[in-house]
Design a protein around this nucleic acid. Structure first.
Length: 654
RNA sequence: GCCGCAGUAGCUCAGUGGUAGAGCGCACCCUUGGUAAGGGUGAGGUCGGGAGUUCAAUCCUCCCCUGCGGCACCA
């Protein structure tokens, strides 16, 4: 009296099976070789374990190791369990928690008194290989919730008890056995541990991580691993990581003599002449861009009395991140305290508030390259990407509610232009909607979110939802770039704010002659110059576009009696607006070239007797091996044109 | 902030319970050399800071600072 189900295969054919048949049995019914190669199935869109029964009609396809996505998931997931087993075999007192698959690998969090060491990683790795070589089958069962809880209580696995308790009641509690070792897991898994590639994984690092990601909870020890289907894939991945480390902006920043950090001012960059050159160029570019897009530029105080921060709400919400300044003892006695500004917005509202504004002034786009200081937690600091002192390309658009959508759309357009100019035609967009704790009515939030979403869609931007991550005062768009090591950094942002204008009592006179509250859009494109320059360095591997390159041309003499002509050429290049230097050191040209090439100088002019005699230069361009002899004036004209920032380039330029 | 690891010359790193070494760089000299390293000589270090153990600490112990990898945070 078994009922039957109908399964549809990828080729469209249908077959009847007894209800409860497993995906593995279905594969076997198709062919013995397929059964042997099968690793999992996709049943009705769900990644399905070969051991799981199917009890409803549906579509099915069988996966083999050739199905990369599914194969990698099973491999990484399987290795997570094997690693946990290895750890418990080596150190039985260790408590297990969770071990999810992540990009390129997995991690597993353990609770153990003693810290894992790099030597332990090697031991674990060896034990994992041994476990894999035992080729034990994987078995799964669905358990009663209470039975599972009891089981884990008896085993002394408190984290597993918590996990079982957290499984929603409409979902099965699934247990897996890998040989004798057992773990709670929603699956699916490979049918046999021996299918895991013992030579295509590596344990990478040990790190702390809070249980359930909550800093109030106990700190566990997390071990990260990477895994692939084949040894070659692992090798190329490790090589790629090395490559990425080589383009780390912190490394390039010191190799190229751009900036440095020191103990006296943690999280604040000391910009060297070459780094500051990039900074200045970028700032000038942004300034021109903003002018074109209808922004006015302002400048506001760095040190501001606490009364403003109290009014803006920062004193309550942000104080622990603010650098406080006691100016003198008298002020201190009066309880007067100043703070370095962590943001520009309150100051901008004060400029808006000076004098009477009318709807005719809106939208008012007020920009500032404002120097901000935030006391970031020590563990958050990361080169230029996360600093305590930085300059934002900040602006606030004061507008009417009906203008939000239009302003958003033109902002996204401007941001896309700028990112493209700077070498980031691709970036992620996240839409962060209302958080649980928020100001303003649901109706206002509905309107603000709606305006942001429709403007984003109108701009043709794909975005992902970042639920509940909006600011307390309004929803935001986040524009995210990825660094060399794969870490994401938010650069641009657009935030709708109904709260700050209220708190600081901003108003304008509307068409009706009455006072109205403007809406404020907080927005930035680069985010901070520091972070964005970090991204630029990594993105270009230090080889910045010519207009941004801190050293554009070095004129190197080959013989010392060419030094005078060399200096003259440099002067003429500088007058033509090019960043040029002379290299008249007493060294061979081969030595100079090597040093300049490794120093990422985009263009070298070499000057020997011939060039002096013929009034030419020998040009060598970074990345090319050949050279080219050109009259000096022609070379100056050519590179002066190339040195133009992208927004100033004439149409017919390259 | 939390967990772990690290800090020796300008840089990259070696090293030892008896106050330190290499390569590169730097300075000077020789060399005038045609596109990725010409040769010689020399100067440089409170071994991150403080305390302790010891006859003696750069090395061992503790505290702090900074950095690195994560976690948490990123208004």
């Amino acid at each position: 009296m078994t009922s039957s189900i109908t399964l549809t295969f990828p080729d469209g054919s249908e077959r009847q099976f007894d209800s409860g048949i497993t995906a593995g049995e279905v594969a076997a019914s198709l062919s013995i070789s397929l059964r042997r190669r099968a690793i999992s199935a996709v049943f009705n869109g769900t990644h399905w374990d070969l051991q799981w029964p199917m009890e409803v009609d549906g579509s099915i396809s069988i996966n083999t190791m050739d199905d990369e996505g599914h194969a990698l998931e099973l491999v990484r997931h399987g290795l997570a369990h094997v690693m946990a087993r290895a750890v418990q075999e080596l150190w039985p007192e260790t408590k297990v928690t969770i071990g999810p698959v992540i990009e390129n690998g997995w991690y597993y969090d353990f609770d153990r008194e003693t810290s894992f060491t790099p030597v332990d990683l090697e031991l674990i790795q060896q034990r994992m290989r041994k476990i894999i070589s035992q080729r034990e089958p994987v078995r799964t069962e669905i358990w009663e919730r209470s039975g599972a809880i009891k089981h884990y209580r008896n085993l002394g696995e408190p984290y597993k008890v918590e996990l079982v308790e957290a499984i929603p009641h409409n979902q099965p509690v699934r247990m897996y056995w890998h040989g004798d070792w057992q773990d709670l897991c929603r699956g699916p898994h490979l049918g046999n541990i021996g299918q895991l590639p013992a030579d295509a994984f590596a344990l990478r690092s040990i790190a702390g991580a809070y249980w359930r990601g909550d800093s109030r909870n106990r700190m566990l020890q997390r071990i990260y691993g990477v895994a692939f289907r084949r040894k070659e894939d692992l090798k190329s991945h490790l090589k790629m990581l090395e490559e990425a480390q080589r383009r780390d902006h912190r490394r390039l920043g010191s190799e190229m003599d751009l900036f440095h950090f020191r103990e006296e001012a943690p999280g604040m960059a000391f910009w060297h002449p070459r780094g500051w050159t990039i900074y200045k160029q970028l700032k000038a570019y942004m300034s021109r861009r903003q002018a074109v897009h209808g922004y006015v530029e302002v400048n506001t105080p760095t040190i501001v009395d606490r009364s403003l921060w109290e009014a803006s709400g920062h004193w309550d919400k942000f104080q622990e991140h603010m650098f406080l300044v006691h100016i003198d003892s008298e002020q201190q006695e009066n309880g007067k305290i100043n703070a370095l500004k962590p943001m520009n917005c309150p100051c901008h509202v004060q400029i808006f508030n000076k004098g009477q504004k009318s709807y005719r002034n809106l939208p008012l786009r007020m920009a500032e390259f404002g120097s901000c200081a935030r006391f970031e937690p020590s563990g958050a600091l990361h080169g230029l990407m996360r600093v305590r002192g930085f300059v934002q390309d900040d602006a606030h658009i004061f507008c009417e509610e009906a203008q939000i959508e239009g302003e958003t759309a033109s902002f996204i357009k401007m941001l896309t232009e700028i990112y493209t100019d700077l070498g980031f035609p691709e970036f992620k967009v996240k839409f962060a909607d209302r958080p649980e704790l928020r100001a303003g009515s649901d109706e206002i939030w509905d309107r603000a979110e709606g305006a942001l979403v429709s403007a984003t869609q109108a701009a043709g931007c794909e975005y992902e939802l970042n639920p509940g991550e909006g600011a307390f005062y309004g929803p935001k768009l986040e524009f995210v770039l990825t660094d060399a090591i794969g870490r994401d950094w938010q650069c641009g942002t657009l935030q709708v704010d109904f709260v700050m204008p209220e708190r600081l009592d901003a108003s304008y006179v509307g068409r009706d002659g009455e006072k109205h509250r403007p809406v404020m859009l907080h927005r930035a494109i680069l985010g901070s110059f520091e972070r964005f320059i970090g991204m630029l360095i990594e993105n270009h591997f230090g080889n910045l576009p010519f207009w941004l390159a801190p050293r554009q041309i070095v004129v190197a003499s080959i013989v010392s009696h060419a030094n005078e002509y060399t200096e003259e050429a440099v002067q003429r290049l500088i007058q033509a607006g090019i960043r040029a230097e002379a290299d008249t050191r007493n060294e061979k040209i081969g030595y100079k070239v090597r040093e300049l090439v490794t120093g990422r100088v985009p263009v070298i002019f070499a000057i020997g007797e011939r060039e002096v005699a013929e009034n030419t230069v020998s040009i060598r361009t970074l990345g090319k091996t050949g050279m080219e002899i050109v009259p000096l004036q022609d070379a100056i004209d050519r590179f002066a044109a190339l040195a133009k920032p992208p927004d100033l380039v004439d149409g017919d330029q390259i």
